[in-house]
């Protein structure tokens, strides 16, 4: 019994592979559309020619009981602001989340596909993938997006997961070829990533309690927004604040907006006194 009529057939437990093979038109990217009008090839030997995300700051840092992931809310189109309240941090499953930098459309599509991928595997196999397995799968999806990178559509994820076997939060960063690198303490990507990394380097301590770690993360986003035009800071007038999620042994939780706002109000009040 190979094929069941009226129901989709595929061998293997990967939804991503199933889409690639059976429904390539639903896969992220525009492979079929752009194949016959390729942009000029990028000369990778020249410095500065590898496309990189040019908006956004998203970051992740470990704390005592897990890891925190946070991101700003601004989307840009050239020198215009396209959206003030876009979400860049996504819940992926019970124990993991990812944040994205790059072209908004393909980024959101990849997050959605990755969510489906992990849930699909869990349902078919009856067990969740390991933390490492999830991170590797995301690397393969980034790699599959490489042709789109040469069209200028970069998707760059930052992934945090709680490893239930090791009982610790873990942070994974990627490069455009799908290379996967684990970070030991904290990392940030996007156009303001460097500024956020500088702040975290100064203020990060290992095994910080949740509240302190969250404050460091939000401060890093604040400083990145201060320096980088592509990153949005707290918008006090409209009441728009960066979003954050926490993964720990208890699962994933959203940091409520009230808590983020309270932390920023304290931070801003302190700065006024300088």
């Amino acid at each position: 019994m190979k094929n069941i009529s009226f129901l989709p057939y595929h061998e293997g437990s990967s939804f991503f592979d199933f889409l690639s093979e059976r429904h390539p038109e639903l896969k992220p990217g525009l492979h079929a559309i752009t194949a016959h009008r390729m942009a000029p090839a990028v000369d990778l030997s020249q410095p500065g020619t590898i496309p990189v995300p040019h908006g956004t700051t998203v970051l992740a840092l470990k704390y005592r009981d897990g890891a925190i992931i946070a991101g700003d809310r601004r989307a840009t189109e050239g020198f215009q602001i396209a959206d003030r309240r876009i979400e860049k941090v996504f819940r992926i499953d019970e124990y993991s989340a990812m944040a994205i930098a790059g072209a908004a459309g393909p980024c959101i599509e990849m997050a959605k596909l990755f969510q489906t991928e992990l849930e699909h595997y869990e349902k078919l196999e009856g067990v969740q993938l390991s933390c490492e397995g999830k991170a590797n799968k995301l690397g393969q999806m980034v790699k599959a997006n490489l042709p789109m990178v040469f069209q200028g559509l970069v998707v760059m994820p930052l992934y945090v997961g709680y490893d239930v076997k090791r009982n610790e939060g873990r942070i994974f960063k990627y490069d455009i070829t799908g290379g996967r690198y684990e970070e030991s303490d904290h990392h940030s990507i996007g156009s303001g990533g460097k500024d956020a990394r500088n702040t975290m380097r100064e203020h990060y301590r290992s095994s910080l309690p949740e509240e302190d770690a969250l404050r460091v993360g939000l401060l890093a986003l604040y400083n990145a927004a201060d320096e980088d035009v592509g990153t949005g800071g707290p918008d006090l007038v409209r009441g728009i604040y960066p979003t954050a999620k926490i993964v720990s042994g208890a699962g994933i939780t959203d940091v409520p907006e009230d808590r983020v706002r309270a932390l920023y109000e304290t931070m801003i009040a302190e700065r006024r006194r300088f």
Partner: peptide
């Protein structure tokens, strides 16, 4: 076999 095909059907529709 039917179970897996059903999950594929559901996940595809949801996606």
């Amino acid at each position: 076999h039917l179970r897996k095909a059903g999950i594929r059907h559901a996940d595809l529709t949801g996606y």
